Simulated assay, not measured.
Amino acid sequence: MPTINLAIVGVGKIVRDQHLPAVAGNADYRLVAAASRNGRVEGIDNFGSIEQMLSAVPSIQAVSLCMPPQYRHAAAVQALEAGKHVFLEKPPGATLSEVEDLAALAADRHVSLFASWHSRYAPAVEAAREFLSGTRIRAMRVAWKEDVRQWHPNQAWIWQPGGLGVFDPGINALSIVTRILPRPVFATAATLEFPENRDAPIAASITFTDAAGLDLSAEFDWRQTGRQSWDIVAQTEAGEMVLSEGGAKLSVDGRLLHAEPEQEYPMLYGRFAEIIRAGHSDVDLAPLRHVADAFMLGRRKVVEAFHD
């Protein structure tokens, strides 16, 4: 099949660490342009805005949007209106409504839209899904705790409205949970901890259930120091399942069943090429919907100020 002429918008840390290596290693793509207010990609045409880029490089067929979610809808509309396929870095937008609007626009323009939940492509996620499909789940506990100073140093946008705060990593856990559970869940209560000087939470605790009464709780915290925790533990009739290291390893009753090298972004770009050539979209809003529900149900708790 012909290669896909790809452009990237928003050249920051995630692009340099993940997107550029994944695209370089995939023969389905040819990176032809980039647009960013501050970053540049060597060896291709660079522009200060998506408007300039789309006007100057009509050969672009697909666009990866990697700017903060508060600014993604406007850029996605421009790309979709121009007939380009669009890859949305997670979370796909700042609100459910705007992503639904993009999905409708993509369908109207007969182009593909991809909401890229990268943690669903962690090595052991599908093995966990298969394990849980064959047993009864008694309870599940999610602990997603990390040091914001390590992973998001001096990034003001994450603390602003629409930046999601601790849900920026927490939504990764929710993307896995909604993939591996055999039936949908819904939030029943939440507590969101807001630093007194910030507009987004630094920690959150949520309880969930499903139609069968599943006991599920999640703890997200950005104040973790030392060892970082990205774990999902399920008590089942077939034993205790531990999906650890962000979905990289799967153990049951202490026995390691699955561990492979991480290939999340290469797999994402493989999926994007697949849906482009199939002529359809992949836009699952379940993880973002759970975040929205937590904000709707959540009890707001003000905690001490946070300073970078």
Rank of each mutant, 00 (worst) to 15 (best):
K145M: 07
V142K: 00
Q155C: 13
P153W: 06
N154Y: 10
L164S: 00
G162W: 07
R149E: 14
F167C: 05
L181C: 09
W157H: 14
A190W: 10
N154S: 11
D147K: 03
P195S: 00
A189T: 12
P169T: 11
V177R: 01
T191A: 14
M140I: 10
P161C: 03
N154V: 04
W151M: 05
N197W: 02
P161I: 05
L164V: 00
M140W: 02
N154F: 09
T191Y: 09
Q160F: 11
W144G: 03
D168W: 11
W151N: 11
W157A: 15
W157M: 12
V148K: 10
N172K: 14
G170S: 03
T191E: 15
A190F: 10
G162A: 04
N154C: 07
I176Q: 02
I171Q: 11
R198V: 01
Q155E: 15
T188A: 04
A139S: 14
A187P: 15
E193Q: 14
A173G: 03
A187L: 13
W157F: 15
Q160M: 15
W151A: 07
E146V: 14
A173D: 02
N172W: 08
V142L: 01
G162D: 08
V148L: 09
P182D: 06
N154D: 13
F186A: 12
F194C: 03
R149I: 08
E196T: 08
N154G: 02
A139Q: 10
K145F: 00
T188K: 03
I171F: 05
A189M: 05
L192T: 10
L192F: 12
L181K: 06
R141E: 13
L181D: 04
F167I: 08
D168T: 12
W151E: 12
R149A: 13
Q160S: 13
A139L: 01
I176G: 00
L174P: 04
D199A: 14
V166Q: 00
G170W: 03
L174R: 04
E193N: 13
G162M: 06
F194L: 04
R179K: 13
M140F: 05
D168G: 08
P153Y: 05
V177L: 10
W151Q: 11
R149F: 06
A143W: 08
I171E: 08
K145Y: 00
A139R: 15
P161E: 08
V185I: 14
R138T: 08
I158L: 14
I137V: 10
A139C: 02
S175M: 09
A173R: 03
P153M: 07
L174D: 03
A143E: 13
T188C: 05
E196A: 09
T178W: 00
F186T: 13
P182A: 01
R149T: 13
Q155T: 10
T191D: 15
W151S: 11
F167V: 06
T188M: 05
R141M: 05
L174S: 03
I137C: 04
Q150K: 07
I171H: 08
T188Y: 06
R198I: 00
L192I: 09
A187K: 06
R141F: 03
V177E: 03
I180H: 02
I158T: 04
D147T: 05
N172H: 15
A189H: 11
P153L: 07
F194S: 02
I137F: 07
K145R: 15
